[in-house]
Amino acid sequence: MDDPQQFEAFMRAYQDMVFGTAIRLLGDFAEAQDIAQEVFLKAHAHFDSLSRSATVGGWLKTVTRNLALNHLTRHRARWQTFSDLVKPGDETSDPVANLPAPDLASERWDADARHQWVEQGLAQLPALQRVPLVLYHFEELSYEAIAEELDVSLSKVKTDIHRGRQALRRHLLRAQLRPEGMTPDTPS
């Protein structure tokens, strides 16, 4: 890498995608920053070829996902123990219920605030629900691919995604956000 300015421009072009993928999977700001830094250090090592590649976005996304999942795997024992404690129909386990209700009357309840509300809801989901949900809805992996990636059964993936969706749906409804007939950029 001979031109730091070129790499900096490259980094600024992709940093939201890399950081966004990391924070959605990890749900933690500091950890997502660490992962994003690691991704860009790897990109820097391969920058000569990456800067000319048409698939650089895919490469960055894949590396981010793999590093984030590896990071989560290190805490996997704790993660699985908690997942086993969550029983179907356990309403007290709603992970997003503790977030304060949004001030919908506020002038600041604009598109950015709504996006932030959704991201907060995602971050509040337990990892066992958030990770497969993000892999499915944002990374567009199939149930089978997620099961393989996370080394869990297909039925567990479906169950966890279903619970995650239910929790996220409740979270959206608290802010009167209804996905039907609207996009995240249009007022509800």
Binding site: M11, D16, F19, Q37, L41, E119, P179
Partner: peptide, 26 residues
């Protein structure tokens, strides 16, 4: 519908400190 809604969400913004931090590390 939820899938479409989530897919259209913009990626969360990276903190402004990320790029300088990476460059310092390099």
């Amino acid at each position: 519908l939820l899938h479409e809604y989530l897919r259209r969400l913009p990626a969360p913004k990276a903190p402004p400190s990320l790029a300088p931090r990476v460059l310092r590390e390099i």
